[in-house]
Amino acid sequence: MLTAVKNQIKVTFISVKYALMREMLNKTTFLMNVIFMILNNASFILQWVVIYSLKSDVGGYSFGQVLLLWGTAASTFGFAHFFFKKSFSLSDAITNGKLDSYLVQPKNVLISAITSDVEPSAIGDLIYGVIMLIVSGLTIPKVLLFILFTISGGITMTSFAVILASLSFWFGRADSVADTGNGMITHFATYPDGIFHGISKIILYTIIPAGIINYIPVSVMTTFDVRLTLLVLAITVGMTALAFLFFYRGLRRYSSSNLMIAKI
């Protein structure tokens, strides 16, 4: 069992390494993708600079906390899209029968499928996240929590994408549902949760887990709370288990296809 997990991790890292090597073949495009993503994210902060020049508090967040909120949002997004890029287009793989090659390999189909590609611009998101962390003020516990929540948030975001994409096994093309759901997490995760109330707030901590990915981590990094940290980790484990359950239940309904496919 332990050897199998070790071998799976080894293959996953080789797969990510090879995908990165492919992206780096075109040096200019690769660097442009990274740099432009940092600039793109930076442009959003400008609006917050303007807002905080007029107000000192938005939804209970200081300017430093908003920077941390953006940093965590960018790093979790970057982590998920760099390591698990294909989870965000998994619906297409299910609908168009692109899982065949993973099904004939003695490895976990879901992990092999979602780690078969990387998104270079996601490196820009990760770098931007670190910059925001530095700007918001560095402490060792904060850095460690930031790393922990980047990983847990990235995995939760990926699990959410996998659950939505797995609906394709039952309902055919669920790509637009998955795109909308994934987009909503990203959008909501960059606004202070204090501006949301009632049902919308409940939704952000349940159906759209922006609260688990971003709001609670920012709160814990501001004022450490061991119970909230454990809650985030428990939900991450639960979401991951749910993603595997959904995907493998659905896989029994996979119908493949006869499309000509190249792994490029």
Binding site: S101, M260, I264
Partner: peptide, 11 residues
């Protein structure tokens, strides 16, 4: 599968 490449094309 003659119609489906399993190799990484850039490698």
């Amino acid at each position: 599968f003659g119609q489906k490449e399993q190799l990484w094309m850039h490698l």
